[in-house]
Amino acid sequence: MEVLPSSILSSIILASILKSGFIYCQSSDCYPQDFKALNGFHEQLDTPIDGWDGPLLACCKRIGVMCESSANTPSRVVGLILGNRRLKGEVADSLAGLDHLRVLNLSGNHLGGLFPAKLFQIQSLEVLDLSYNDFQGSFQDSLNLPSMKSFNISYNKFGGPLLVTVCHNTSYIQTLDLSSNNFQGQIPANIANCSSL
């Protein structure tokens, strides 16, 4: 059986999630908490995001933002897909305010510093791709991602002991890529808890 690279598997999982109900929202409505979270994220970056400059746009009209709407309620941000956008700077913890977020893809940028621990607590998050950046630090004690299906933090500078705590509280995880970081120690036995890999 041929093994697919994790980037392809992540893309397949992302495509299936997108097919299951994400829409680009045409409404100008924006849930206030989501609006505040996106603005805080943008203000923290050293480089502007193309299409986010100028007048403050509604959440769902911004490049890379995917929303889901329901009758009589403002649209909620469910996807932030900003891979390979040449973004620089640090990620603001305001993104944790996107409490309906299912997909966060910041891969292939020049983002660095400590990745906010609050973002490893978003209960609805299914796809997290931080690969090919310069994030550092140890984060694993703060992981609580029960809905996670694809977790890719490869090619960063995360360090410390390799604790695969993402396998403790999810049975859904299908792809897990921790490669090319600065982790130390042995591969822990609890990785076997990720039974859907």
Rank of each mutant, 00 (worst) to 15 (best):
Q44Y: 10
L56T: 12
C60W: 04
K19A: 10
Y31C: 03
A58P: 14
V65N: 11
D46S: 15
F22Y: 05
C25E: 09
D34G: 02
Q26T: 02
A15W: 06
I63R: 11
G51M: 13
A15I: 04
D50W: 03
W52N: 03
P48T: 10
C59A: 03
E43K: 09
S27G: 09
F41T: 02
D34W: 01
I13E: 07
K36V: 05
L18S: 10
D29T: 01
S20G: 13
S16D: 05
F41I: 04
T47V: 15
L38D: 07
A37N: 04
C60H: 06
I13F: 10
L57S: 06
R62W: 00
S27E: 10
A58D: 14
K19W: 05
V65H: 10
I23M: 12
A37G: 04
C59W: 00
I12F: 12
S20A: 13
Q26H: 01
M66K: 08
D46Y: 15
D34E: 01
N39I: 08
S70Y: 15
L45R: 06
W52Y: 05
S16W: 03
S27F: 07
W52R: 05
L56D: 12
Q33G: 08
D50G: 06
E68L: 14
P32C: 01
D29E: 02
C30M: 09
F35R: 03
S16L: 05
I63S: 11
Q44F: 11
C60T: 06
I12Q: 15
S16H: 05
I49S: 13
T47Y: 14
S20F: 00
